[in-house]
Design a protein around this nucleic acid. Structure first.
Lengths: 102, 102
DNA sequence: TGACTCTATGTCGGATATGACATACATTGA
DNA sequence: TCAATGTATGTCATATCCGACATAGAGTCA
């Protein structure tokens, strides 16, 4: 089983629990994952508040529905860059991002 | 002149000024750049506080001195992911990251 | 039922970021 | 002066991420 696949499956597990143990992640790896998952969650929440479908958000971002779905699912192939860009595109400011991590 | 080169040169310009105007960036693009540059700055500050050379930090990150230099220089080829991972590796917590953006 | 909308997931070729290397420059100290 | 140390910058092959596409599943409405 390759690493990519494993990480994807492990990501599933993260849905319940709080993304730190039952995987042998170092504290900083865990924090990194936690940040990404938090932003994933916030992205979905923000999109729903604005009553946008994934398809509509995808257009706004010049991306695709499938990538938006992956972003919201916390797929490991989604970068922090893309998450942050997306939140900014939805109107979040730097300060709002800061609050999301607090 | 290709886009990659242009962005690199523009990054130089960011050293003075505050990364928003004199480049025709949309507000969210500007915010994105601003976030990256802020983290770049913080990375360098944190490294120096710990009295580490770029080479030493590179070893810690399993990266290379040149990449650390690029991170600190705000080179556009450096991702937010790498910046965040690096700060976490230097001991910054999610909350500290939050404060850095505030 | 079936059409429609929204979301999830797998895959793929092309785009971008990566570590590594070479090399130049700056500073320090002997 | 020279060597040592630290930093900057360009390049490259490879790894990783990207948008796009196909397709499946769930929910809604007539």
């Amino acid at each position: 089983m390759n690493t990519t696949k494993r990480k994807r499956l492990e990501a599933k597990g993260w849905k319940f629990g709080n993304a730190s143990d039952f995987l042998n992640l170092s504290p900083e790896e865990a924090a990194y994952v936690e940040v990404k998952l938090e932003l994933s969650k916030r992205l979905q929440a923000t999109r729903r508040e604005k009553n946008l479908s994934q398809e509509q958000l995808a257009q706004l971002l010049k991306s695709s529905q499938s990538r938006v779905a992956k972003m919201e699912a916390g797929d490991p192939t989604v970068s922090l860059d893309l998450l942050v860009r997306s939140l900014l595109a939805l109107g979040a400011s730097r300060r709002v991002l800061s609050r999301m991590l607090a």
